[in-house]
Design a binder for these strands. Structure first.
Lengths: 149, 149
DNA sequence: TTACCTGCAAAGTGTTTGCAGATGT
DNA sequence: ACATCTGCAAACACTTTGCAGGTAA
């Protein structure tokens, strides 16, 4: 079966529909945080006739996923569109290529082992975000003579 | 004089205007990354008659500042509006209160002293962002019985 | 004087929403 | 059967842009 452990996602007023499965599958396959519009384009390419997808549905599905803590929404610097990625259970951070958006994990989270102090007593840290930006080897090599940005 | 070291900002086709000074002043006074619309409201409150400000001007000023690397644009998780803050010359990171947006510096940048490895050779890191989120002491105390979020 | 800014209004763009019909359980 | 989804189109909110007049250098 192609069910994987995706099963436990659905339930309690959270219906399993073809559109949601498709979007989830795209997020699962992607090594890169994607935008709603990118997901929409992939849907149209992969399943041109099986189902008429609407962009608004993609947004609604992503929002539903976010509410159920299945995906994380984020912005890359210089971009104004939201990107979505699957919420992985492991605590990990990535370096993101500014060209192809590939994510490469970094060795360890510097905040896991403590050692970072906030300069105000009583500040209650509930979360953090670490993002490294740069150019992955492939994009560097391909565009190696365009030194701009 | 109220000139401060703001002087060296202007020049080379970058004109000093009242609107730009006002916006810069607001950014300078604010301990919090602000949105364009917040700046606009502050302008209307502070100088109701001296000058007719346009929201689009605020955006243009902020974009100009960004191009000249005077301000940094960023998004807070769960927010879709851009926030702007002065680009401080010192390399520093902050913990941001999700309620009042106050920023509290953290002790040191964990990436300054190396030690973080990217799991791909040849990945060229050009920048990073670290953001800690949580609730500052004041907001915690004020809203201490609303345990939601 | 000239290039650069601004206010205004109109256009853009990413995202959301109302509604009637369709679908999952 | 019923609540929950979906497609469509219209609505939204933040941001950008064209233009004519204004301002700094």
């Amino acid at each position: 079966m192609k069910e994987k452990q995706t099963e436990n996602i659905w339930g309690r007023g959270f219906k399993r529909t073809k559109q949601r499965e498709e979007v989830y599958g795209i997020l699962e396959k992607s090594a890169v945080p994607v935008t709603a519009q990118e997901i929409y384009k992939i849907l149209l390419l992969e399943k041109p006739k099986e189902c008429q997808y609407a962009l608004s549905t993609v947004y609604r599905v992503l929002n539903a996923f976010e509410e159920h803590h299945l995906v994380k929404k984020s912005f890359l610097p210089g971009e104004d569109m939201a990107r979505y990625e699957l919420e992985r259970n492991i605590h990990e951070h990535y370096a993101v290529c500014l060209v192809c958006h590939k994510r490469v994990p970094i060795s360890k989270c510097p905040f896991e082992s403590g050692g970072i102090q906030v300069a105000e007593d009583g500040f209650d840290i509930t979360g953090h975000r670490i993002e490294l930006y740069g150019y992955c080897r492939a994009c560097r090599q391909r565009d190696n003579r365009t030194g701009d940005r």
